[in-house]
Amino acid sequence: MRITFRDAAHLIRLVVVVLIAIAAFAGLRSLMVPETFGQYGHYRGAALEENRQRAVSFAGRQACAECHDAVVEAKKPGKHANVGCEACHGPQAKHAEDPSLKPVKPDSATLCARCHEKNSAKPRGFPQVAAKEHNAGMACADCHQPHQPKI
């Protein structure tokens, strides 16, 4: 072994250069690579948390039921029992946070037609009508109650 290192003075310079290169690499890498990169894999771990922190705009039917339990109860015997509130009333997270913000009452003529207008691609058993023949000029809500749609 002694023989190998006998005149290795010129190698010391090389060692120093390599060490400086490694230190520079480590320094640059820690500056350029985000802190949470590699936490779970080859990506920035903090991106998950950032994604989770976004605000919601649909409050969810549980939130609706906390105040409007009478409506939920009224819906139960009808065909629309499992239709979410926000399916018709639109996103109401703001209203759930601040009930003084009153939502706009949906227009039944366009709303009912979205689901129940006749279409040849709809499943056979699904109740559908051609609005022009069924209730020309009339509002659906004149006969059907959306929360309990049977006449």
Partner: peptide, 23 residues
């Protein structure tokens, strides 16, 4: 699509599932 990660991580369902009338 993030599968509404901000919703499902809070115990809610996705916006599309919430709004789907037929389940």
């Amino acid at each position: 699509c993030t599968l509404c990660y901000h919703r499902i991580s809070k115990g809610l369902t996705t916006a599309c599932c919430e709004a789907c009338p037929t389940g």
